[in-house]
Design a binder for these strands. Sequence first.
DNA 1: TTTTGCATGTGACAATTATCACGTTTTACA
DNA 2: TGTAAAACGTGATAATTGTCACATGCAAAA
Lengths: 211, 211
Amino acid sequence: MKHLVESIQEKFPTFEDALINSINTNALLKNIKNEEVLIHTGQNIRSSVLVLTGLLKVYREDEDGNEFFMYYIQPGEACALTMICVMKQETSKLLVKGVADSEILLIPLMCMETWMAEYKTWYKFVIETYKARFEDLLLTVDQIAFRNMDERIEFYLKKHQHVLQSNLIPITHQEIANELNSSREVISRLMKKMAERGKIKIHRNNVELLF
Amino acid sequence: MKHLVESIQEKFPTFEDALINSINTNALLKNIKNEEVLIHTGQNIRSSVLVLTGLLKVYREDEDGNEFFMYYIQPGEACALTMICVMKQETSKLLVKGVADSEILLIPLMCMETWMAEYKTWYKFVIETYKARFEDLLLTVDQIAFRNMDERIEFYLKKHQHVLQSNLIPITHQEIANELNSSREVISRLMKKMAERGKIKIHRNNVELLF
DNA sequence: TTTTGCATGTGACAATTATCACGTTTTACA
DNA sequence: TGTAAAACGTGATAATTGTCACATGCAAAA
């Protein structure tokens, strides 16, 4: 258990000691495997999520099950959407899954409320989380509102390059197509052109970025 | 001046008295005319915005000056994006304009910070604002990620119907095209089909909704 | 009333993206 | 080693959206 406290301190250095203690006693530590779905469309959200280790991916899902990738949540961050707990009834909803084996903290909604009043560092963190996700989402809007698919692929790959800290992105054309709500053939063709322009190298099951 | 206090009380009924007094002494009341631009791309944001009367529209702008409509801000609401004050340097930015003669309150950034700590009702309001805008933005993402232009037009018109509380939307095809980042001809053609299907009636300078 | 500007209609065509139907290559594993 | 599944390539074609050119109609201002 003392390991958990240290882990929280390390990943959330702004949190005050009393808050960390309260997290330690009230939050539920959960392990998420790679590819495991944490939150599914239509699910009733009962707690908020903090990421300790690993990596989560957040999607918007439509009624046909198409998954549109919006942004990553990295260690030390929280899912703003689980904070917006009272999800209204909508046809298109949310999907959060692990893209690496991850450790997360589930914060009961009741704690959220009381901590907001009690711990300055907590509400600052919540505000920061909203800000950060809002900006992520605006960048995503930019892409789909103003960009063609080839530019969106490039943006998508760069985002992965940044989060994975690697020029070798382990992903298939089909997966990219799913996450950009396009089709494999379109992605393959556009990436072939990008490869011809010397921007990337295409391998089986992964893409090598040359930028 | 007492009128201002009453107006704030009316539009922001959750605010505690001390907070309203502080707003009264610290905030700047500003009048925005219809079509007047409040915040322009690249502008350094020095204060946050509360809407007292009228109506604001928030756009995302790209480097070519295309304006993509995201959502409305109504009386009693705040602009979450002016709260995210430290706008990072981005190629695509923000535009907020009045779509009716409006009264707004400019809240200095310093007040934002101190009120967060001081007034429970203020930070609840800020959190609520983030939530509400986040949801608005997600609905917008749904549209551009998953929908064709005809469905997006319908969603766009419905949003206006709801905010304007009227089935007669005073808008030109060119304006719709601008706000959906499309072209007038496309909008005209698709709306003609919608008219044939009995969904709308097209008039000069306005559209009548039959749903 | 005439003129002028704006809003809208429309045909032709281009660009982008989606879909279908295959074929080829690589990998896993029976 | 052989076979099946998965990943990727590619041509043909369709659907959607964007662009250009120009016509028509309405409405305000001179």
